[in-house]
Design a protein around this nucleic acid. Structure first.
Lengths: 215, 215
DNA sequence: TAAAAAACTATACATATGTATAGTAATTAT
DNA sequence: ATAATTACTATACATATGTATAGTTTTTTA
């Protein structure tokens, strides 16, 4: 199942060992230390993994020994904060247009990784940014072009503002579950009709914050 | 002037070079790199400084190469933000209620320092955060409790949303200069009358971004 | 001003480190 | 089932690194 830039199971474990080492020591491991940690009897195994992870964009390195650096891609993949950054900062992927037929976190959908303060967004992990398209939520003062911080979850409470996938498009609506089992996704702009879904809905997360740039 | 644990001038400079290196590279320097940076022709000079700084409690190290670590004592001494902070982050003071009679940036007015991404707020320095009080700008979808990122400037263009000081209170309004020299501060909520000022106005800055937490 | 401490130079050496060569074993794709 | 890729083992080697020896120069302390 190893795609172009995805990780195999062993590579995944190896990357996690690197993260663990840096978190514990505040400096990067040597090739031999990684081999030893991973139970390899030769440095070559670790060196091969390192080169693969560098090629796939999860690591960076200088010619100097112990100059390994995890990329933001790696931190997002690991769903962990960057231990070298201040712990009050998280990097969140910014999703632009959702490509039809692709998983929502496919690389094609990620515009960039944006550093966001935990202080202003709450402490929880597992979040992403979504750019608002259209004015259907203007009643909640969420406007076209705003960036939303979305906390990843697949359920919601009645009245929550959620990001959901509808025909391969990410939509932002208020979520209501009716007593007959149907789900209503309601816009806060009265110009838009509520969307009624009998088969449930693929909720991506709950909107917990709004960010808007004024030009 | 070298006290028991205080630093001499050269040690001070040397410690700052270490701080700088780690900030820029995210991994610690080698002894020779430090010698080279400091203009020494031998690694011994750097090694001596390192041992002194370790003895005095500003550094820690393992037997491994490149395992230097700045201690909390060092951070305190340097009066610097954590070197592991990403440079794409700025700390902005968050202003709450403005105390009457005090300058706007008086310590009494600063609630806390909030890390904000340069990527989402533009690259400029000289900004602060202001918590919105009331609904007078609801027409611009700026709501009670929102946090505004304000770029410090004392002038504004017609139509800009500005933060201004009015009777020792920070207000957020749209700025209009009329041909007769008077200034009008206009709320975007029609329930509020425009404020007309003959003597000009003390503009604190221009609102460049809005941040809102949804509960 | 003399003594002590700090701040170096120049060179050497054992070890840690990244990388290379030449393979084998296991897993995945076709 | 076969080929390709991944995931290693074992060993070797040039270089980077920390440390040591033996000094000199500069700055600080008494």
């Amino acid at each position: 199942m190893a795609k172009k830039t995805g990780l195999t199971g062993k590579q995944d474990i190896f990357l996690k060992e690197i993260y663990k080492f840096i978190s514990e020591n505040n400096y990067p491991p040597s090739v031999r230390e990684l081999a030893s940690i991973s139970g390899f009897s030769s440095p070559k195994g670790a060196a091969d993994h390192l080169n693969t992870l560098i090629k796939k964009g999860y690591l960076q390195r200088n010619p100097s020994p112990r100059s390994l650096k995890l990329t933001e891609k790696a931190f997002w993949y690991l769903k962990m904060p960057n231990p070298f950054n201040d712990s009050s900062i998280l990097y969140l992927p910014l999703l632009g247009r959702i490509a039809a037929g692709k998983p929502i976190f496919a690389e094609e959908n990620i515009d960039e990784y944006v550093p966001i303060s935990k202080q202003v967004m709450g402490r929880a992990e597992g979040q992403f940014l979504l750019r608002v398209n259209g004015d259907s939520m203007s009643g909640d003062h969420i406007m076209d072009g705003d960036m939303l911080i979305v906390k990843i979850q697949d359920t919601a409470e009645n009245g929550d503002i959620v990001a959901a996938l509808l025909n391969d498009e990410a939509v932002v609506k208020r979520f209501y579950k009716r007593s007959d089992g149907t789900v209503e996704l309601v816009s806060s702009n009265p110009l838009y009709e509520p969307i009624v879904l009998k088969d449930g809905v693929r909720i991506q997360g709950k909107v917990i914050a709004v960010y808007r740039h004024i030009f």
